[in-house]
């Protein structure tokens, strides 16, 4: 069955009879084709030249042109140009012309008949020395002599006092027993440190204001455990007072007391907003 892609064989064409006439025809039509091509190319180039003279070009920065004037730097979303040489920090696209080094002028050597005249040394003017002003004498204040007879009692003395700067505010410790603080200063330091650590500032409520001041008194037993914490100066906020008491209650112990008597400790909290 014949298909479309394979047409049936036909009779051979009479080539020999048409050879000469065909050659003449080919050369003539080749010339015509050349002329036509040249005309088309020439027309295109000529049209381009003519039209270029009469129309405004794209991107022309003039008010008459139809395009929008843009600044390419801000419009193109590209990173700024890289430096040409990464090793040199100061390289730029348009390097400035380096200043030519000026030749140092050398003084001409002195002529043989010239004599060098030394410059006159000028003395600094004399200034009379001023006596330093004497500082005002410090008047020593003598404390009033006590009218009371001295006894072993020493009330009102708050020594030693250790103040620890904590995250917000200060916590200061006062051991009421004066001789204890002198003898066992290291223990007072430990008490101060542990109380300051125990004051958990994260629990401070949002309403706390700077300047809140509370004083707690507690007892340290001979085994080092704190007991009976109580507020003696209220801060005005019940929540803050509870927080101060909890600070003491949270402590397991300070270590055994170095003396056989319990001590009383005063603990002052000053709140400062962070």
């Amino acid at each position: 069955m014949p298909t479309l892609t394979q047409p049936a064989p036909t009779a051979p064409m009479p080539i020999r009879h048409r050879t000469l006439a065909a050659r003449e025809n080919v050369s003539a039509s080749f010339i015509v084709a050349l002329v036509l091509h040249a005309a088309i190319i020439g027309g295109a180039v000529g049209w381009a030249l003519i039209s270029n003279f009469s129309h405004a070009s794209w991107g022309e920065n003039s008010s008459q042109s139809g395009s929008i004037a843009v600044t390419a730097v801000t419009a193109i979303p590209l990173p700024p140009k890289q430096r040409l040489n990464e090793d040199h920090v100061l390289t730029s696209d348009s390097p400035s012309i380096a200043p030519t080094p000026t030749k140092e002028k050398t003084e001409p050597p002195p002529k043989k008949d010239e004599v060098l005249i030394p410059e006159k040394a000028t003395k600094p003017p004399k200034v009379a020395e001023k006596a330093a002003p004497t500082p005002p004498k410090h008047v020593e204040v003598t404390p009033p002599t006590p009218t009371k007879a001295t006894t072993g009692d020493s009330s009102g003395v708050r020594i030693p006092e250790a103040v620890q700067q904590v995250k917000n505010g200060t916590a200061s410790i006062t051991v009421d027993d004066r001789s204890f603080g002198q003898r066992y200063a290291y223990y007072a330091r430990i008490v101060d440190q542990k109380v300051s650590e125990s004051w958990n500032t994260q629990q401070i409520f949002p309403g706390a204001t700077t300047g809140m001041h509370a004083v707690v008194i507690f007892t340290i037993n001979t085994d080092g455990t704190p007991s009976d914490p109580r507020i003696v100066i209220k801060s005005g906020s019940a929540a803050f007072d509870i927080l101060a008491v909890r600070t003491i209650q949270r402590i397991d112990g300070f270590g055994p007391l170095p003396q056989p008597r319990p001590i009383t400790v005063e603990f002052a909290l000053d709140y400062k907003q962070p």
Binding site: Y186, I190, Q193, K194, G224, D252, G253, F254, G255, P256
Partner: peptide
């Protein structure tokens, strides 16, 4: 350590 470490 016990004396200076607060009883621990």
């Amino acid at each position: 350590i016990s004396r200076l470490g607060g009883g621990v």
